[in-house]
Design a protein around this nucleic acid. Sequence first.
DNA 1: TAAATTTGGTTTATTTTATAAACTAGTTTA
DNA 2: TAAACTAGTTTATAAAATAAACCAAATTTA
Lengths: 94, 94
Amino acid sequence: MLKKLNPLLHSELRLAIMSLLVSIQKADFTLIKEKTEATAGNLSVQITKLEEAGYLKVKKGFKGKMPQTTCIITKKGIDAFEQYVEDLKGYLKL
Amino acid sequence: MLKKLNPLLHSELRLAIMSLLVSIQKADFTLIKEKTEATAGNLSVQITKLEEAGYLKVKKGFKGKMPQTTCIITKKGIDAFEQYVEDLKGYLKL
DNA sequence: TAAATTTGGTTTATTTTATAAACTAGTTTA
DNA sequence: TAAACTAGTTTATAAAATAAACCAAATTTA
């Protein structure tokens, strides 16, 4: 029957972040913000949740003089994403 | 780009209800409760939301002497579900 | 046949989640 | 050097999901 959906991924913004990272492996905060059209605050909160779950790693550095936060997807994150897609297919009949 | 997901459908229980109704057109409260494994209270609330959105119609009657609440999916509901599936594909890369 | 239990729900309260607003720290530009 | 901008974080608020409590009628059981 219908599988319970991973609540961490069943969130529009977090899913968008993970979807992007599944494609390009890593992306900095600014790029993710542009692609998802999220507010900085919301994005910051959701990245932290994904990091706490071990779905991505956050590296902080500088690009020139400006701070730069880079997110890199983990194996665990990729696996969770793929499992979520499979589970969701049951709902969507795909 | 990523489309904004219909928030009414981007809910595990409401999506499960709609998924069931897309398949079988109509179902009574008890059947939906069994299939989704939701609590009665939660189910009642979510059915009301889907009804208010015009995604399903609720018919109240009796089966023998016991009350019976039947949900019937509408055209609007089917269309919304299909659009949601298409929008979601962008996130899932399907 | 009267009390207890079950069925089929609704309403209301609580918890969780998502989102926005406010703030920090530093940089660039006029 | 003051204003505006970049790149975020923290905190407060709004919205949503869920659970708990409740209700009425029907059914079972003692």
